[in-house]
Computed example of a mutant assay.
Amino acid sequence: MPESSKIFTYAVDGLAYTVTVYEENGEFFADITVDEGAMDVNAIYFGDDDFSGSSESLSGPLNLNGASLDGEKVQWDEATQLSDPGLGPEGEDKETYLQTGDTMTVSLDIASLDEIDIFGIRATSTTNDAGSIKGVSGDPEEPEEPEEPEDPEDPTYEKVFFGEVFSESGDPLGGTFMLAEEPDPNPYSIPALPEGTEPTFDNYLSHFLSDDIGGDLSAAQSVVFYGTGADGAQEELFRIDAPEGGFQSADDLLAAYDDALDGAGDLAGHDLMAALSLDGHAEPGPEAGEDLELEDFDLA
């Protein structure tokens, strides 16, 4: 039996889990149990209640940027990757994919339970509406604070263009279009996210840089985001222009993306996308799938 423990809980519509952190025979572990729904646990984060100093982070879609607890930004002491996003060929048999009643045990490199007052989970392929979470939980032994509103869901996009060449008017000419879902038929072999992947920008960027696509981020002049407009047609929502010298890393681009979202205020989903589209770049883009004409742009 565990000698001592701390319990963290997290719940949103469609997903709930419990994390029990404990010491047993001089070693420390975390039991992650899904109480409702399912999730693919890609990374864990933890720290004490002192939020000073630099924060540990994982790059790309495994980051927990913007995490807060009781209105205060969290500073993480440790961050550990457990798996890559996406269920892949293993599907629901993937080791880190947990469904209701499943428990996964993770060994922790700590010397005392006092090192953990805050616990975070970065998960994808989740059963909440957003399809992913940046879950943050405080120690329930602390005095209860008024419940904070749930963090806005990560926006999703129907298509993202990693543009290398644009016309003088800003129309896309060369680069890589990527779709949320592969059309059938797909005569021009337009890249799409792996089946079942939530179309967040983290996931688009991760797939663009994967061996399957082999994208060159340094060549991108602008990244253009597409969604459904008020009339139901697909249109450009906003774009992020590369700085002089281009994007140096995925983290640089994600930071610029976070800045763009922060600048739109505390909005979520298509309301946030509508606010971003006011930047003057919102021009109708080519439709997904078979409506895309080969002569309009260069495909990667």
Score class of each variant (00 low, 15 high):
296 D>C: 09
143 P>D: 15
120 G>R: 02
267 L>D: 04
21 V>I: 08
46 F>Y: 10
67 A>K: 06
57 S>Y: 15
70 D>P: 01
251 D>R: 10
30 A>C: 08
24 E>T: 07
72 E>K: 11
58 L>S: 03
216 D>S: 13
172 P>T: 04
198 E>W: 01
124 T>Y: 12
260 A>K: 12
270 H>K: 08
106 V>G: 09
127 T>S: 14
258 D>T: 10
11 A>R: 14
298 D>I: 08
253 L>Y: 02
218 S>A: 15
128 N>G: 06
54 S>C: 13
261 L>Q: 13
176 T>Y: 04
9 T>L: 09
156 T>P: 00
256 A>S: 10
297 F>R: 13
6 K>F: 03
196 G>Y: 01
256 A>V: 00
161 F>T: 00
163 G>Y: 00
84 D>T: 08
100 T>R: 07
35 D>Q: 13
1 M>V: 13
162 F>P: 00
66 G>K: 05
253 L>V: 03
282 A>Q: 08
89 P>L: 13
102 D>P: 03
271 D>C: 07
93 D>N: 14
266 D>H: 08
220 A>V: 09
125 S>M: 13
291 D>L: 12
69 L>M: 11
238 F>D: 06
138 G>L: 01
273 M>D: 01
226 Y>A: 12
218 S>P: 02
133 I>Q: 01
7 I>R: 14
28 F>G: 07
204 Y>N: 04
54 S>P: 11
52 S>H: 10
265 G>C: 03
95 E>G: 06
94 K>N: 06
217 L>K: 08
171 D>S: 13
29 F>A: 10
294 L>F: 11
71 G>K: 04
273 M>N: 11
73 K>G: 09
44 I>F: 01
295 E>R: 14
111 A>K: 09
214 G>T: 05
94 K>L: 12
113 L>T: 02
93 D>H: 13
84 D>W: 01
208 F>H: 05
234 Q>N: 10
108 L>Y: 00
110 I>L: 08
180 A>G: 07
180 A>N: 07
209 L>H: 05
81 Q>Y: 01
238 F>C: 08
23 E>Q: 14
7 I>P: 01
163 G>F: 00
40 D>S: 14
44 I>P: 00
151 D>H: 10
87 L>M: 05
66 G>L: 00
63 N>T: 13
250 A>W: 02
9 T>R: 15
193 L>F: 02
79 A>K: 05
295 E>N: 14
77 D>H: 15
292 L>A: 13
248 Q>F: 04
155 P>L: 08
63 N>M: 06
111 A>S: 11
34 V>T: 09
12 V>E: 10
140 P>D: 05
216 D>L: 10
105 T>P: 02
55 S>E: 02
156 T>S: 06
247 F>R: 08
190 I>Q: 11
59 S>N: 12
270 H>C: 07
257 Y>A: 06
51 F>P: 05
108 L>N: 06
99 Q>V: 11
